[in-house]
Design a protein around this nucleic acid. Structure first.
Lengths: 139, 139
DNA sequence: TATAAACCTATCTATATAATAGGTTTTAGA
DNA sequence: TCTAAAACCTATTATATAGATAGGTTTATA
């Protein structure tokens, strides 16, 4: 498994935020309910997203989270790399890259390459249901 | 991590066999030494390869393992799928495919697709140092 | 008949995954 | 000014997976 629930849930949180009022702060409770993920586990995930300045939190009543930038600027590759620590398809030893035997070195490098190329070209915007111009919000 | 040591070592065993006398049976002990992998752990790996009829073993003195087919017929995708159980980049719950939220379903399917396409087109032969016509064997 | 090999079954340990628990701090609004 | 709602913080726990190891039995060959 290349992408664990942390990576997957992080993407869903970002999509959720992208699909709702970009100016407003959305409470985690709401996201948890919509995405059917425990609020406590989401806390773990948004912490990373927040520290990376992908999202920002506002404390206190009326608080929540919102995206820092436009959904089109968040590449899936970056989110996964943030959450998983790497995009490499093969294991590393104590954080150090493994020493590949020559024969398979290019195999794994090439694989990481196609994975990265694919995920580089997909953004949160691509995965978000666009807010229709006909939609209206109660602000 | 998409590919664990099981998948990686399996590929190395296959390459090792491809690079040596195709008719002869190569003892695991030799492969273990060359590849610097414990013989006991390799036993676990060759068991799967053997059950899948990718390689065949011969017991007793003078025995060992050899490839069943030509190196060009072994796709890396198949070997990894055999060893890891899946080529899917995301986790499954109790062996059942996870139910994806619609937004990201195509994301993960697309990712599995590019991974498979890449690995489908590489065979054990591609990773093996070809036996030169100038080389000679003592048979 | 000794030796070398595959083959078999079980066990083990460390790490990563996936979460949960129980708080403290901050802020808005009644 | 108090209360509610929210983020934020630190620690713990359960389970699964990864990555092996141990100790044997069976089989074939020279």
């Amino acid at each position: 498994m290349l992408v664990s629930t942390k990576g997957r849930y992080a993407i869903r949180v970002m999509i959720d935020l992208a699909e709702h009022d970009r100016e407003a702060y959305i409470p985690l409770k709401e996201i948890a309910k919509r995405q059917n993920i425990s609020e406590k586990y989401l806390e773990v995930i948004v912490k990373s997203l927040s520290q990376a300045h992908y999202i920002e939190g506002l404390r206190g009543k009326g608080g929540g989270y919102r995206l820092v930038n436009d959904p089109s600027t968040y590449r899936i590759s970056d989110i996964i790399e943030l959450m998983e620590g790497t995009l490499s398809p093969v294991s590393t030893i104590k954080g150090e890259p493994i020493t590949f035997e020559d024969n398979t070195k290019t195999l794994w490098e090439g694989l990481e390459d196609v994975i990265r190329k694919y995920l580089d070209n997909i953004t949160i915007q691509d995965l978000s249901t666009p807010v229709q111009s006909g939609d209206f919000y109660i602000i």
